[in-house]
Design a protein around this nucleic acid. Structure first.
Lengths: 340, 340
DNA sequence: AACAGTAACGCAAACGTTTTCGTGTTGAAA
DNA sequence: TTTCAACACGAAAACGTTTGCGTTACTGTT
């Protein structure tokens, strides 16, 4: 078991000083040609690699990005991570991922953990519970310490920082407009409770589309799912017996549960009723019928977030770049669930 | 913007030495009761938290686990990560995740990156390309440096280290046995090329089940998909015109593509033909018909891997625990695709 | 009064780097 | 022979911790 090689060991072996070794490896002109060659050859032979921790301590930079997300077993978040990873790696950054499991406490603990030197900055989507509580002290503290923070997807308006979002309202409006265009008259909305920001915004988009087309908003056609674990049943109950010819759901699962509920009631999608979802996951693509849905371009969001963060990290002290909010365009992907 | 508080600053502020502050905070008996109280009060007031990097350098431990996986946009891997995260967090470890994108080069780069001090040990599933090349120098090097390595899912037999696997052969055999039990006579296999270890093992399980039931292995009923991107078409072509009453596919997607292909040919699942998949992902659960499949219990695998790694990390120098291979039991989840 | 014992604290090294500054040696110019 | 660059290298500080050991200044004992 060979322990990792250090500058000190090389120095001792070659009978020079540590500083000489360091300089030689960094091609300093201070070091004579022959000793430099000798040192480099030795380092290469024994595969010397500088210790990242020591470098981090010295440079006060870790070259790693902390990512905090509510959960990872969720297609949208994995695509975002994928985008972050790619950009980060290109620029020589590592990515350290923590999950809050939608718990406020875990979010706080994770942030404090990573903020103590492990990370140069954060990319995060806040936990549902955090949005509900409205307690953002951990975020403010991190920002106050001078660590850049980029929020994506579930962002908090009151917090000043870089943000990467989609225009949930517009995405939803376009989805509902599509339903209207294909002549739906009674369009139901299946959404989340209002404190989930994206749910609220998408609800708003739904309403805007109706208003814009002079259709009236019928509260009976709106379901705000409280408990995700029982959403399938909630949706089934909600849908039964209602006269509906179109459904807009704020995520894949709700959309699919709706389709299943219709099936049970002898209604077919798309023959009898149209359905549009949100998030272009594997389910939307593979389900039968394949699902018309609003794509959020997760990888693109992740990439943008990473770019934003790295820009902040690498900007010179003075430059004080202003905070930016990037809106990634959504696109409506039309599939079988809205085609006759 | 308050910069992070350090021992040195506290020392200066309270007019004591750095060592006194450190000892006071760690409740050393060397420090007098009153100064200790004073220091602790000050530290608490200004929310002092020790710098992780400095601690890592001193202790030669980072308390972080490196995870390297082929890709993250894959349900199975996210469940594994989820399991790793949970156990790691319980024990005070962070998790840093890198993706190889199934590229040998990226796997090597990532490992070397993390091995230079960023990580105490690794949990990984090797890239497809690595298995194909058979070049494991990066793994050997890491082990040689004394860093524990735990492999899961796609493991390499020649490498001596802890492993967490499922018994792919048994899982596959049971799946095929189930098809046989429900009286399938012509069972097709849709698998991967042989250098993907799990594909090979599952193929073996398929064969064993047939042999064990005195059924002959018909090579015409075995498809080894070469190119994942064109798998849907490959599967459609393979299936067309064949007399088949059961299909065992080595993953969700292949299974679903098979079902779709049958539909196109006017065959119904489960009425005309049965299908069993592998991996209990969202697709298997939600697809219509819902898919009978072999569950790998990813979260359980991740948790076991993390436990194994942490045990190694925290074992005393002398103790030399032997390498272990944990086999996580699979279970066959029966759903509609095999029920009439 | 001399001494040992002890409580309370500071010094300095160590972890592995990088970098500033100093120092000694050479060769050539004066 | 002296002087002075230029050259090649080393010492030491710094990043933020922890910790073994040394150093005070008392207290109490003989």
């Amino acid at each position: 078991m060979k322990k990792k090689l250090t500058l000190k060991q090389i120095a001792k072996e070659l009978d020079v000083s540590v500083s000489t070794v360091s300089k030689a490896l960094r091609d300093s002109v201070e070091i004579g040609e022959d000793t430099r060659q000798k040192i480099k050859a030795f380092a290469k032979l024994y595969n010397y690699k500088p210790n990242n921790i020591a470098l981090s301590l010295k440079n006060k930079k870790t070259k790693t990005i902390g990512v905090i997300i509510p959960e990872i077993v969720h297609h949208f978040f994995t695509t975002v991570i994928s985008g972050i990873e790619q950009v980060a790696n290109e620029r020589g950054y590592n990515v350290i991922i923590c999950m809050s499991n939608n718990s406020f406490d875990k979010e706080v603990i994770n942030m404090e953990m990573l903020a103590n030197g492990s990370t140069d900055g954060f990319i995060m989507s806040v936990a549902k519970e955090t949005q509900q509580k409205g307690d953002y002290h951990h975020l403010l503290e991190v920002i106050n310490q001078g660590m850049p923070l980029v929020m994506f997807d579930r962002v908090i308006e009151e917090i000043e920082c870089d943000k990467v979002i989609i225009d949930d309202t517009v995405g939803a409006r376009e989805a509902v407009q599509h339903l209207i265009d294909i002549e739906c008259k009674n369009i139901a909305l299946i959404t989340t409770v209002d404190y989930v920001s994206v749910g609220k915004l998408r609800t708003q988009g739904y309403q805007e589309a109706l208003v814009h087309n002079n259709m009236k908003i019928n509260e009976d056609l709106i379901l705000k799912v409280e408990d995700f674990d029982n959403s399938e049943e909630e949706i089934r109950n909600f849908l039964s017996g209602k006269d509906i010819d179109g459904v807009f759901a704020v995520n894949e699962h709700f959309a699919i549960y709706a389709i299943k509920a219709f099936h049970e009631n002898g209604l077919r999608v798309p023959e009898d009723v149209f359905v549009v979802g949100f998030t272009n996951g594997e389910l939307s693509k593979q389900f039968i019928p394949s699902l018309t849905t609003v794509s959020q371009h997760g990888a693109e969001m992740g990439a943008q977030a990473a770019r934003l963060l790295i820009r902040k990290l690498e900007s010179e002290e003075g430059e004080e770049e202003p905070y930016e909010t990037i809106i990634v365009e959504t696109s409506l992907i039309q599939r079988k669930s809205t085609k006759r």
